[in-house]
């Protein structure tokens, strides 16, 4: 399966880390780790610029993270206009990497606070497309 199933709208289909989508479909959110220097990459990368290595291993993230910042969008780019308002968030995973995703619609806007515990969770759209979202821990 190619990467173009990822996200509500996908802007690209070809990538060396296309297996990410395959793992995601099985309920796993994966990062990559450089076998040379040990650096963890999320979003996953096939290449490590620090030592020009391409020797990487897939590694599952626990999903445990904390909210760093967020915004509720009331205005959207093409393809997302029917979804407003939605809340875009940046969270810090316990493994040290950051994740950019939407906050689950089950979290009320007045409950949102920076520092809150969240759980990064795979999400399947009714049309079969896949993504991940941040749920209340």
């Amino acid at each position: 399966m190619s990467f173009d199933k990822f996200g509500k709208i996908s802007y690209l289909s070809e990538t060396k880390v296309a297996d990410f989508a395959k793992y995601l479909e099985k309920g796993k959110i994966m990062a990559t780790r450089c076998n040379t220097c040990g650096k963890l990459y999320f979003p996953p990368q096939a290449d490590c610029p620090d030592d020009l290595s391409t020797d990487m291993t897939w590694e599952k993230l626990s999903g445990k993270c904390k909210l760093l910042t967020y915004t509720t969008a009331h205005f959207a780019p093409a393809g997302f206009q029917d979804d407003v308002p939605y809340t875009i968030a940046l969270a810090q995973c316990e493994e040290g990497v950051k994740v950019y995703a939407l906050l689950s619609r089950n979290i009320n806007e007045n409950e949102i606070c920076i520092g809150m515990d969240l759980k990064l969770t795979p999400l399947q759209f009714p049309n079969g497309r896949i993504t991940y979202e941040l749920k209340k821990a």
Binding site: G7, K8, I9, Y11, A73, P77, G79
Partner: peptide, 12 residues
């Protein structure tokens, strides 16, 4: 690849 699929834009 990793952020536009969430519907982001400059003001956000």
């Amino acid at each position: 690849q990793w952020e536009s699929p969430f519907g982001t834009m400059m003001p956000a």
